[in-house]
Design a protein around this nucleic acid. Structure first.
Lengths: 137, 137
DNA sequence: ATAATTGCAAATTTTTTGCAGGTTC
DNA sequence: GAACCTGCAAAAAATTTGCAATTAT
């Protein structure tokens, strides 16, 4: 559990309970799309509106507090901003899990970008497949 | 220009002119979202309906003739299926360009997957930044 | 105090669907 | 000629907007 109020204030966003609830939901869920976030926050704060979830996800993504994870064939999920990592995405159960980024991958992608005079900001690596759980079934 | 009819038939899809036109549009554009595809096919075949574009993109993605490229902060784009590669995505002009996949990246991602007993099918790597053109302006 | 944020309801945009007629193999 | 595909119009789903009331700083 992180200090959500601090995260928000560092980006000059007001620490409303709606935002704190959304961040807390993302923190426990790891990755979730708008609908999933909305359903989760409703459980503890039934007055939060869907429009507020939309507006805040947009704002918090713009401010870099939250990161969008676009996924083939699904609606985008969102996660709290943290160190760079990659995603293992199970095509069976839909789970998303984080794995640390390797230095060598960073270096290779830097090289590739450099070879096109492309100035990279950030990477996004998704690996699609079947997770351990679904495989064992 | 590839043999679109063949591509379709290999996946037991009928080679309608609507599908051929969509594939041809993707071939020339490289990457495009639904709206862009629709606008482009309209130029040569003004009778094609938007619903047909939606239905066909869905079908052709399911059959693996076309691949979805989900992009942070934008609507998904689509491209013709081809060898594995990665994407340089310019946050200024929105251009997407393909770069060859490096062996070492494949290997590293295999290792990462293996370490979680995850069985990988395919990777998707997006590098976001500023392209040469936009940088020079 | 004030500037930002919220919830609501409505508007807009995006995507999906059902079906009668047409096309491909 | 059978199964598949199309266009249309309508329905459903997803997202955005405007605004008066509320809240954080």
């Amino acid at each position: 559990m992180r200090d959500y109020a601090k995260m928000l204030k560092e980006h000059s966003l007001k620490a409303t309970f709606q935002r704190m609830t959304i961040l807390s939901a993302l923190d426990t869920m790891g990755h979730a799309n708008i609908e999933e976030i909305y359903e989760t926050v409703l459980k503890t704060h039934p007055t939060i509106s869907l429009a507020t979830v939309y507006k805040n996800i947009l704002t918090m993504v713009q401010e870099g507090v939250v990161v969008e994870v676009p996924i083939s064939g699904e609606k985008s999920k969102y996660e709290l901003k943290r160190e760079e990592h990659l995603h293992l995405i199970c095509k069976k159960c839909g789970s998303v899990s984080d794995m640390p980024m390797r230095e060598s991958i960073k270096e290779e992608t830097e090289k590739i970008a450099r070879s096109s005079s492309f100035k990279p900001f950030r990477r996004q690596i998704n690996i699609y497949g079947i997770c351990k759980n679904c495989r064992d079934i």
